[in-house]
Computed example of a mutant assay.
Amino acid sequence: MTDKDTFLKSDLLERYLAGLTNTQENLEVESYINTFPEVKEAYHKLENKLELVALANAEEAPTHLLESILETLDHKPVVPLNNNRNKSWFTYGIAASIATLVFAGSSVYFYVQNQDLQDENQVIVDELFDLRSDIDQNNLRLEALSKEFSRLNNPETEKYILNGNGRAKNLKTIAYINPKDRTSLIDVVSLPLLPKDQEYQIWAELQDKQVNLGILTPSERRLQEIPYTKDALGLSITIEQKGIKPNKNTTDTPVAEIELKIED
């Protein structure tokens, strides 16, 4: 037999109350309870605690069920209860408490899992929405490129290359003009950088005047629409002062120019 302090530090009392001890352990526990007042006091304290736990988790039986049991007992002989009735009652109470805790823990776990699943689903929905938006934008770009490609490869479209002179050696643009469709495109291949107060402008040369078709910027390395000018004899690019609207008298000498051979 172990000493009293060692016994109290073990879990024999708890397992005894829960009905989890074997015959040998039952004898040992009962012997300690009857021999040592400290063990007996610890036993009663633990018994009271377990009783409170069991009562807290117990549910009141329906009235009709109690009446049915009492009616049945009136016709049955009384059978003496064995000495372990308290242990069995506490065992069921403990089992009910454990089941309640397990159920509560499971509920929390599944709630958290459900929230995580909803968050993941929302992320997937957002990603699909972004992907669909990207696909739509790419389709629009492809459609625009396809139209531009068709226009550039149209047999009626004339191609003109404008190279810069000594004042703008690296300047190169390509003009695509279709007199049948009355469309004009300009492809800015390269434009030398200018001071901040200057800019490139493109012009249409007519019989008796020049018509401004817009500004060319080095940052716009793409096909740009420019106004179609009927009866244009040529195209030219000049360097002008920003903020000053040029005219025939103020226009600088061209840094690139080309004659057009278009029969309208």
Rank of each mutant, 00 (worst) to 15 (best):
D3N: 15
F7M: 06
F7V: 08
S10G: 10
D11Q: 14
L12R: 12
L13Y: 06
R15A: 10
R15V: 06
L17M: 10
L20E: 06
N22F: 06
Q24E: 11
L27Q: 04
V29P: 01
S31C: 03
V39M: 05
A42Y: 04
A42H: 06
A42E: 05
A54L: 12
L55K: 15
A56V: 08
A56D: 09
A56M: 15
A56E: 09
E60Q: 15
L65I: 07
L65E: 06
E67C: 15
S68M: 07
E71H: 05
E71Y: 08
T72Y: 01
L73R: 12
H75T: 04
N86P: 00
N86G: 07
N86M: 08
K87D: 00
Y92C: 01
I94E: 01
A95Q: 09
A95M: 08
A96S: 11
S97A: 15
S97L: 08
A99T: 14
L101N: 12
A104I: 15
N114M: 07
D119Q: 11
I124L: 15
V125Q: 11
L128Q: 13
D130Q: 10
R132Y: 14
S133A: 15
S133Q: 14
N139M: 14
L142P: 05
K147W: 03
E148W: 04
L152N: 01
N154P: 00
G166K: 10
N170A: 12
L171G: 02
A175K: 04
A175Y: 04
P179V: 04
K180G: 00
K196P: 00
E199M: 13
A204F: 02
L206Q: 09
K209H: 10
N212W: 03
G214Q: 03
I215P: 01
L216T: 02
L216R: 02
E220Q: 13
Q224R: 11
E225C: 09
P227E: 03
T229A: 07
K230M: 08
A232F: 00
T238I: 04
K242W: 02
I244F: 03
K248V: 07
N249D: 14
N249W: 09
T251V: 14
V255R: 01
A256W: 03
L260Q: 08
K261F: 09
